[in-house]
Amino acid sequence: MTGAPSGLLVVTAVPAEAEAIRAGLPDPATTVLPVGVGPAVAGAATARLLALAEVAGRPYRGVVSAGVAGGFTGRVEVGGMVLGTRAVAADLGAESPEGFIPVDELGMPPELLGGGTSIAADPELLAALYAALPDATLGPVLTVNTVTGTAASTDALRRRHPEAVAEAMEGYGVAVAAMHAALPFVELRTVSNPIGPRDRDAWRIREALAALTTAAKALA
């Protein structure tokens, strides 16, 4: 017997992000769970949650990767909200004397690349969230394994991804899990710090978590 579909699955990296979202969540049908840090663990854990829900006959309607992020200066302010138009695996590829080469430009068979290094957000889910959060900044969100912490690496990311607005560590992995489950995906982030030279004193985690609570109203 197949049960009624569940609501959205919202996954975060850490419990504090999940708690911030639950604090502002108006819809009890929305599931919010922390799944771990980094694209590999986040993707694997999300895939398991989606598979278990499907086997139970209560598949989710869509997947949201949510949490705090670093924002590119001049594109989004600290404390601001971001809705990702694409999840981009920014450091998946190869170095060369001519510069970084994304993995989907290395000549591998397409079937080995899944969705490639850039997975678009579902347009309807993105539009629905943007309608509820009109002050959010739209743009690609980069997924990195190593958080950017120098001026040189920040400049390199800006050159390779001139439209990107933020960076985090889980979105691409979650997007791959959603894509394989044929479910809509979008990334929702609030900015805790500017991307650039590492400066813990400039981080505003509390403000970013408060912004997540405000943003949670859009997840109904």
Score class of each variant (00 low, 15 high):
V76S: 04
L126N: 01
P123S: 02
G114T: 06
V78T: 12
A89P: 02
R86I: 00
L125F: 11
D91Y: 10
V82W: 10
A131K: 14
G114P: 02
P109D: 11
G84Y: 11
T85Q: 04
V82I: 04
A127R: 15
L112G: 07
P102N: 07
L92N: 05
V78G: 01
A89K: 01
A94C: 12
V88D: 13
P109Q: 10
A127F: 05
A90F: 08
P102I: 04
P110H: 07
P110I: 00
L112I: 00
L106N: 06
L113I: 08
E124P: 00
P102Y: 07
T85P: 03
V88W: 12
A120I: 01
E111R: 12
F100L: 06
L113N: 11
A94N: 07
I101P: 07
E124W: 12
E105V: 00
A120H: 12
Y130D: 04
A121L: 02
G79Q: 06
P97N: 11
A87Y: 13
D104P: 00
A94Y: 11
A121F: 09
P97W: 14
A127N: 07
A120F: 06
P123M: 03
A87D: 08
M108P: 00
L125S: 04
S96C: 09
A120Y: 08
P102K: 03
L126F: 15
L92E: 12
P110Y: 01
G84E: 05
T117D: 08
D104G: 05
P110F: 00
G116S: 07
I101A: 05
F100T: 08
P109S: 10
L125Q: 04
L113H: 09
A90Y: 11
R86W: 14
G114Q: 03
L83Q: 07
I101E: 11
L129A: 10
L126H: 11
Y130K: 15
V78R: 09
E105S: 10
A121V: 04
P123A: 05
L92R: 10
Y130R: 15
D122R: 08
L112Q: 14
A131S: 14
Y130F: 15
L126W: 09
D104R: 01
D122S: 12
A121E: 01
E95N: 13
G79V: 05
P109C: 08
P109L: 06
L106R: 03
G107A: 08
E111K: 00
M81T: 15
G115T: 04
G99W: 12
